[in-house]
């Protein structure tokens, strides 16, 4: 399946390139690339070119690790992607067509079903939750270890 998906992706990419090449003939000004709203992150956890090709595999791998084994590293976690890439305008990665995920995916016509379940916005801890967090820290200081990573 992974191979098939890769082929499909390649085909989509080639189609996109061919399409943009045709489009660029009359429009000398340049190719119509997806517009992406700015997020808060400056640099990704991996090289941009590598991410463009492999983000889906990284996410899928991490997804299974987290879901099935309880591995909770943050480097390739979807939650962290969202925290960094959520646009400054909408605060989301998929609210508008210019938001990070939606921009390329609508451009390449690759449907995503991540957002059926996952939040498209970074978590905002509500005051009550923060309050509870405070209580927890007293009862179990260990929680503090993970707090910096969680409260963003």
């Amino acid at each position: 399946m992974a191979r098939l998906a890769k082929w499909l992706r390649l085909a989509a990419l080639m189609f996109a390139v061919a399409f943009s090449a045709i489009a660029s003939i009359p429009a000398v000004a340049g190719v119509d690339l997806p517009k992406i709203e700015k997020g808060k992150g400056d640099k990704c956890v991996e090289d941009t070119q590598y991410m463009r090709r492999n983000h889906m595999d990284l996410l899928k791998h991490h997804r299974d690790d987290t879901m099935r084994k309880g591995i909770r590293t943050t480097k390739h976690s979807l939650k962290k992607c969202v925290e960094c890439h959520a646009s400054e305008k909408s605060g989301s990665v998929a609210a508008s067509k210019e938001d990070f995920c939606a921009a390329c995916h609508s451009y390449a016509s690759v449907k995503l079903d991540c957002w059926d379940c996952h939040a498209t916005k970074p978590g905002k801890k509500s005051p009550t939750q923060l309050g509870q967090g405070g209580v927890q820290m007293q009862s179990s200081p260990l929680i503090a270890a993970t707090q910096p990573g969680e409260s963003k």
């Binding site: 939650k79 969202v82 059926d116 379940c117 996952h118 939040a119 916005k121 970074p122």
Partner: peptide, 10 residues
């Protein structure tokens, strides 16, 4: 607007 830590969906 799910909790980012608790993904759930239709």
């Amino acid at each position: 607007d799910q909790n980012p830590e608790v993904p759930r969906g239709k």
